[in-house]
């Protein structure tokens, strides 16, 4: 496997504060993977996302994106083009009043020729399922639709990595589902590496790998099964497990002969039926 993002002894702190947001942080993300980043508010996740595409620069250590050092100013656009960022509030990242103009924003900045922009915009909008809305305005769309447009705006840069910072936090269940399905499709069908920052454990369970952060350090790192089986540690850090996993854990604790970390309802039902 090839690494696409790598941090080496990354340290970061804001100028006006003594506290370090990230300290000696080492993380490698494989190309084509889908990683969920968990941690409570203030654990350094959002800063990390911005460090990945050089919106913030490390105060110590190095961040490499596709082998490029983010401190290298000459490569700035190349880095940002490679690693796109989607933020929590869909309203505050849409620049234009017409959907297709918004999606065109990044390719325009990159100086892509007009006909090529047209093609990229159409492709990106089709990819997130918003092509029919290309002439609509953001204020006429639902939260989930706006967030998909924001994703299309990144896809139009043809990035290798897409980092999403709590993209579903402000959405209703329907919007969440739309966005999560879009992320999965980008990852599985288009091979784009996805890094999803979330507070929603059901969403995290869909990733190949979960990294749990606390106080600027990595607390846990593993597959969803490995992570959610650390029930006690997660609860102690103020995180959660999916409700179904909690049920399997409690039943296991109560002496029922089933796995302690089950991620899907069907799996749990099957195991219970077997032992009853």
């Amino acid at each position: 496997m090839m690494e696409i993002i790598k941090t080496e002894n990354l340290t970061f702190g804001y100028e006006d504060s003594q506290k370090k947001v990230l300290e000696q942080f080492n993380l490698t993300i494989e190309k084509g993977s889908f990683t969920a980043l968990l941690g409570h508010n203030g654990s350094g996740k959002s800063s990390l996302a911005k460090l990945f595409n050089a919106v913030l620069l490390p105060t110590g250590g190095t961040v490499y994106v596709s082998g490029m050092d983010t401190k290298n100013e000459a490569l700035l656009l190349e880095i940002r083009k490679n690693c796109g960022l989607v933020f929590q509030n869909p309203d505050n990242q849409l620049v234009a009043s017409i959907i297709e103009d918004d999606v065109a924003f990044a390719p325009e900045n990159l100086g892509v020729p007009s006909e090529e922009i047209r093609k990229r915009v159409d492709d990106a909008l089709k990819c997130v399922g918003m092509y029919e809305y290309r002439l609509s305005s953001p204020q006429h769309l639902s939260g989930g639709q706006k967030q998909r447009v924001a994703i299309a705006g990144i896809v139009a840069m043809r990035p290798s990595v897409i980092v999403l910072d709590e993209p579903t936090a402000m959405l209703d269940p329907r919007g969440r589902k739309e966005v999560v399905e879009t992320i999965l499709r980008l990852n599985r069908e288009y091979g784009i590496t996805a890094i999803l920052i979330t507070h929603n454990m059901e969403e995290a369970a869909l990733a190949d790998r979960i990294v749990v952060m606390e106080k600027g350090k990595i607390l846990l790192d593993g597959t969803p099964e490995e992570i959610f089986s650390q029930y006690e540690i997660l609860k102690k850090t103020g995180l959660d497990v999916p409700q179904i996993t909690e049920l399997s854990y409690q039943l296991h604790q109560a002496g029922l002969n089933i796995d302690s970390c089950i991620l899907s309802v069907d799996e749990l039902v099957e195991q219970i039926t077997k032992v009853l």
Binding site: K50, N53, L85, N109, S114
Partner: peptide, 17 residues
């Protein structure tokens, strides 16, 4: 921040849809 991360760097070398 969102504009910056979408490679906005002023009007130089900018193309149009």
């Amino acid at each position: 921040v969102a504009m910056e991360s979408r490679c906005y760097h002023g009007g130089d070398d900018r193309t149009k849809l």
